[in-house]
Design a protein around this nucleic acid. Sequence first.
DNA 1: AACGATACGGAGTGCTGACTCCGCTTGTCA
DNA 2: TGACAAGCGGAGTCAGCACTCCGTATCGTT
Lengths: 182, 182
Amino acid sequence: MSPRADAVRNRTKVLAAADEVFAELGTDASTDEVARRAGVGIGTVFRHFPTKEALLASVFQERLRQVGNEAAAMATSDDPAEAFHELFTKLIGNSRTKQALGEALTAAGIDIDDAIAPVRDEVREAIAILLAKAQEAGGVRGDIGVDEAIALLIGASQASAAVIDISMRARTLNVFLDGLRP
Amino acid sequence: MSPRADAVRNRTKVLAAADEVFAELGTDASTDEVARRAGVGIGTVFRHFPTKEALLASVFQERLRQVGNEAAAMATSDDPAEAFHELFTKLIGNSRTKQALGEALTAAGIDIDDAIAPVRDEVREAIAILLAKAQEAGGVRGDIGVDEAIALLIGASQASAAVIDISMRARTLNVFLDGLRP
DNA sequence: AACGATACGGAGTGCTGACTCCGCTTGTCA
DNA sequence: TGACAAGCGGAGTCAGCACTCCGTATCGTT
């Protein structure tokens, strides 16, 4: 039996609201707030996600998936070196609250929930492929591996979160990009 | 009237315990835990620091002061370029929980408590001086300012927190150092 | 349209953690 | 060394949050 239509709709609403709320207010925002923002009762939130931790895990998983997709898309570029740099630029520029990304990546390292593991491995794999291509093309220094790249991604997103001005962000990002060159 | 000797002693014990606890368990560790670790009653903690936020602010302030001292000491070096790089290396290597540093610096930006402001400005100034000297000596690229430097410090400490292995940490740090060169 | 199954809302529960209060202890000064 | 101020410990209070439960509403099917 497939789930009821409204159930599916609500699950989506809750997940979106949670992403928003946790990005804006931090991960210790209350579940009530998520429910309110989603326009549903608290009961509904807990029916779809049995614990707050599970909800957080789903949010992080979703964010990770996006990073993975981005990286995978980039890997098909015919200028992988450029694409790798662009991955940094995009990830840092995009996220509403830039810290959110870093949190998700960090959480993936810490393993908030084993359920995240498969997605994390996917992302890792996607980044690994892109990195390897970029290195082969001579656009990225050869002495770093995936784990270093991920750490730098986290660092970059946190660094740029610490900066308000756009031009400052650009200058900060340049340090990363130049540091990544061979 | 100067405060009683045991009061001074206890204040110090509490502050030290808080620094330890928050570094180890994160900033949402309980005040009870701090009291326990300091070997005092909860009442004592709250007598010295009227709220948990005030306690946190004091801890961060202390950490910031250390960074400031470090930077100030470096600024007198006769090889400021090298000294600037060393600031990164030291700060990242030293802290028990590396994330603690980033937290403090970030909090200083967010201004958890106005009381931090003066110390923050001191640190900023110390870093500014060191940076200027390093740039003049041609060891650091000229297109970044203090704020970018601080953001990078935050980024570096978060990035290295995401990495377990020491040699990985070194490789990650190298990206920062190379990116900082002219 | 009517009925069973599925999902919903939100008042209620229990627990955790920040902060208070006061009887007792300890430092300090004469 | 006695007395009083300053400081201490920790049981107690209260607010907020994760999570439960069940009467009610909605969906999907015949």
